[in-house]
């Protein structure tokens, strides 16, 4: 029997992802990939499309990383995004069924629904980053391209750690809103409220 290992210390993983830890993200992605792939495949009717749905889902998780520690129910948020992405493929398949019957003589395997989407997201993120004010851009790049932790960036630029963290939060917000303007939806997140 092939069983999945439970995702231990999910809170710890969330905190690490929020700090930009790629290994922690890969671990989270791998966990959900293994439990969701068979069920997503049912709706996409192809494993390649299912992989894409999961990538599209987790690119949204990654670009919302600073919010992960506070998300009320991370699991159902992930399922909400995955369902939306499944629905898009489902719709494409349903419309495709019509298309094949039309004068359009294209074999179904030639049909690509939006596999360019991740590439487009990459392009839009690049656009958003290049439009940021220079200091914000520099901090964001030190974090993503040089892989520096907020503490290291703070030391490098003689800023406080909290300033760096705030700037990174702003940068991600800016990226998300730029993506949303181009129709890449981020479903609403329910955040935990801290009363103290």
């Amino acid at each position: 029997m092939n069983r999945v290992a439970p995702l231990l210390a999910e809170n710890d993983i969330r905190n690490r992802i929020a700090e930009g830890d790629e290994t922690a993200f890969t671990e989270l992605f791998g966990h959900y990939y293994s439990i969701l792939l068979p069920f997503v495949s049912r709706f996409t009717r192809s494993e390649a499309d299912a992989e894409e749905v999961l990538q599209e889902t987790f690119v949204r998780v990654w670009l919302s990383r600073e919010q992960l520690p506070d998300i009320d129910n991370l699991r159902s948020w992930i399922y909400t995004i995955a369902s939306r992405q499944c629905l898009m493929v489902l719709r494409a398949n349903l419309n495709n069924k019509k298309k094949i019957n039309a004068l359009y003589q294209q074999s179904p395997t030639e049909q690509v629904h939006d596999s360019a989407s991740l590439a487009e997201i990459t392009r839009l993120v690049g656009e958003a980053v290049s439009q940021m004010p220079s200091q914000r851009q520099r901090i964001y790049r030190l974090s993503r391209e040089a892989g520096l932790k907020p503490q290291a960036i703070a030391a490098e630029l003689s800023l406080s750690v909290s300033t760096v963290k705030n700037v990174l939060v702003l940068a991600l917000k800016e990226i998300r809103s730029h993506l949303a303007e181009s129709g890449h939806v981020f479903p609403l997140i329910y955040l935990l409220l801290h009363f103290f």
Partner: peptide
């Protein structure tokens, strides 16, 4: 495969600028 797919995701905001 998981590693590959994850790396593609992580690359979205790590382009060499």
């Amino acid at each position: 495969r998981v590693q590959d797919l994850a790396e593609q995701i992580l690359a979205v905001d790590k382009r060499a600028h």
